[in-house]
Simulated assay, not measured.
Amino acid sequence: MECSSSSSSSTTSQKHEVFINFRSEDTRKTFTSHLNGALERVDIKTYVDNNNLERGEEIPITLVRAIEEAKLSVIVFSKNYADSKWCLDELLKILECGRTKRHIIVPVFYDIDPSDVRNQRGSYAEAFVNHERNFDEKKVLEWRNGLVEAANYAGWDCYNKVTRTEYEIVEDFTKDVLEKLNRTNVSDLDRQITKMEQLAELQRQFYESISTFENMLNRDATIQRVTELKMERSIRMLRLTPDMLSYMENSNDNNKSVFENMF
Rank of each mutant, 00 (worst) to 15 (best):
S4E: 06
S4L: 09
S4V: 02
S4P: 00
S5N: 13
S5T: 14
S5C: 15
S6N: 06
S7Q: 06
S8V: 14
S9N: 11
S10Y: 14
S10M: 07
T11G: 13
T11Q: 03
T12N: 09
S13C: 04
K15F: 13
K15V: 13
K15C: 12
K15W: 07
H16A: 08
H16T: 03
H16E: 01
E17R: 08
E17I: 00
V18S: 02
V18I: 04
V18C: 02
V18A: 05
V18F: 03
F19K: 04
F19T: 03
I20P: 13
N21Q: 07
N21L: 07
N21I: 05
F22I: 05
F22V: 05
F22S: 10
R23W: 03
D26G: 09
D26M: 06
T27Y: 01
T27L: 02
T27P: 03
R28E: 10
K29F: 04
T30S: 13
T30V: 06
F31C: 12
F31Y: 15
T32I: 12
S33T: 04
S33W: 02
H34M: 15
L35P: 08
N36D: 15
N36F: 05
G37A: 02
G37K: 07
G37R: 05
A38M: 08
L39C: 10
L39M: 15
E40L: 08
E40H: 09
E40Y: 07
E40N: 13
E40P: 00
R41D: 14
R41H: 12
V42M: 06
V42P: 06
V42S: 06
